[in-house]
Amino acid sequence: MNSTLLAVKAVSKHFGGLKALDQVTFEIRPREILGLIGPNGAGKTVCFNLISGVYKPTAGEIIFNGERTQGKAPHQIARRGVGRTFQIVKPFATLSVLENVLVARGISRYNHLGKIWSSWKSRAEIRQALEVLDRVGLADLAHRKAALLPLGNLRRLEIARALIVGKRLLLLDESFSGLRHEEILQLEQLIRNIRADGITVLLIEHNMRVAMGLSNRVVVLDHGRKIAEGSPQQIQQNERVIEAYLGRKGHSHAA
């Protein structure tokens, strides 16, 4: 195995005249937790959407597990073992919690015209779905309609779905936002366990304590550019990072 799971190489994404992402390069090594931080509008979610195939890059290369994946459709990238959550939680509202997870479990069958007719309600499927729900602490609510869950549980449901899809890489987009303190502690432990199982994690996080505490390395974006990369300690002392965060609050700064 090579020492890079995902390589983002000089990737740019322009929307008309707006350079949402400009020549960004970074790598993720297997079994690490990489934090992606930056002020609002820095391009973090755009970066996620490029990796997961929602957008095609304007320029640059994305290599996942030794294969160029830019330009591939989201479902093709998901099938290569990339699971993701969304900044705004969107469960399949009319399905139950268990059914939401079962949708993710169908991943090996959806694009197979023979297997698509098989049943999704088999005992083995349900048992394995319940195991994942148990892991995120939602097993008790398996038969509840997803629309009825409070935010904290919805975030766990999203992670459960993403965990099934993301056998190799998990992309977590602000999974901690809006959570209570004890929920944050539980989720941090869950993510550490996930990494211990050999899954690589890329997380976007606004909560600095969480981002610095969980990440092995941190990449900082500002206005679509990478301004720093390093260990949490290095990032916390980095002049440009401090300026990017404080400059936003204080003086008006020319972009």
């Binding site: 459709a73 399949f92 698509i116 098989s118």
Partner: peptide, 26 residues
Amino acid sequence: SKTELGLAMRAVSQDIPIADAMGINS
């Protein structure tokens, strides 16, 4: 109501981007 296709149809009818992220070719 029983097949994987039916479940995928329900998922796609609710949210295409999420269904895509679950590996469904919407």
